[in-house]
Amino acid sequence: MAEKTILLDHGSGGLASQQLISDLFLKYLDNKTLHSLEDSAILQNRRGRLAFTTDSYVVDPIFFPGGDIGKLAVHGTINDLAMRGATPYCLSLGLILEEGFALDELERIIISISEACREAGVPVVTGDTKVVPRGKGDKIFINTSGIGFVAKDIDISSKNAKEGDAVLLSGTMGDHGITIMTRRAGIAVQGDLQSDTMPLHNLVAALLAELPGDVHTLRDPTRGGVATTLNEVAAASGLTIELSDESLPIRPQVRAACELLGLEPLYLANEGKCLAIVSGNQAEKALAVMRATKEGKDAAIIGRLVAGRAGRVIVNTPVGGTRVVTPLHGMPLPRIC
C-alpha cells in the first residue's frame, strides 16, 4: 500500500477499500472461504450450509430521514445474508458507545432495532456493549453479525453471472447516499429525500421461489454504489456489463441533488436495493416478480452481460455514445463547479 496512515478513502467501499483488503487483510488472513470476498461466507458441513456475515455501522448523522443507525445495522446484515440466497436466522449486536452519549437517543436506536428485527422476523440473539472515553468514538458505533441457512441447490455468487444474463435493479438509485450527504451538508432539497434502508430477504425469497436456477447473482449496491458493485461482478464473471442510461431508475429529487453537488448517482450508496443477475430469457418474469413485492415496486431491467473485456462496465448514452464506468476511486466528493 502506498499510504502510511488510514485515510477516509479506505472506508469508501471503492478501490482504496479493495486495496486494504487485498494487501493487508487477505495477506495475513486468507483462506478458501474468506477468499471469495462475497457479501457473506457459506460454510458447509454434513447437515447443510450456513451463511455467516458481519458488518459495522458508523454513519453520521445517526438519525436521518427514512431511518437511523440501528435500522441500518439490522437491514444491512440481513441483506448481506440474502445476497447469497440465505434465509436470515439470527443476528448479534455489538455496541461501542461514547462516554456522554444521551441515553434517550440510545433508547430510540434500540427501539428502532427491535422494530426492524420484528418486521424482518430475524431476532438479535447475542450482544455486547463497550463504552469508550469521550472523544475516542463518535456517539455510537454498531456491529452486527448474522447467520442464515442456504437451501439445497441454491448457488448465488458474483462469479455465476453468465453471458446473455440480464441485470435488474430492484428500485431507484442513490436515495440513501444522497440523503446522508445532504444532511451532513445541511442542504435542503425540494421534495423529500429519504434513505431507502429496508430488508430484502423477502424479495430474494420470492425471486428464488419463482425462478429457481435462473438467479445467478445477487448483490446489494451499498458503498460504492451500483457502479462499483457491477464492476466487481464483471470482474468475477470475466464479462462486460452493458447498461442503458435511460433505464436507470432514479427519483427526480435525487437527480436534482446530484446535479447540484456534481455527484454521479451510480456511485451513491443504497441500503435497500438489490442487483439481480438472471438468465436473459427470464428477465421479464424476474421483473414482474420483483415489482409484485413492496421492496421491488420500482424495479427495472438496466442492462445485460456480454462478451468483451473482462471486468468492464459500459453505459450506452441516449445519443448513441458510450462511456466506461469504473469502480469508485476515493470518496464521492462534490465538485467545485
Binding site: 496512515t5 485515510l7 477516509l8 478513502d9 476515493g330 466528493l333 465538485r335 467545485i336
Partner: peptide, 18 residues
C-alpha cells in the same frame, strides 16, 4: 470537496486530515 485528494509535493490534504 475535490481539493481533498490533490497532491502537493509532499502529500495531500486528505493525508493532513488523517
Amino acid at each position: 470537496g475535490d481539493l481533498f485528494r490533490v497532491p502537493g509535493t509532499k502529500g495531500s490534504l486528505a493525508e493532513a486530515s488523517s
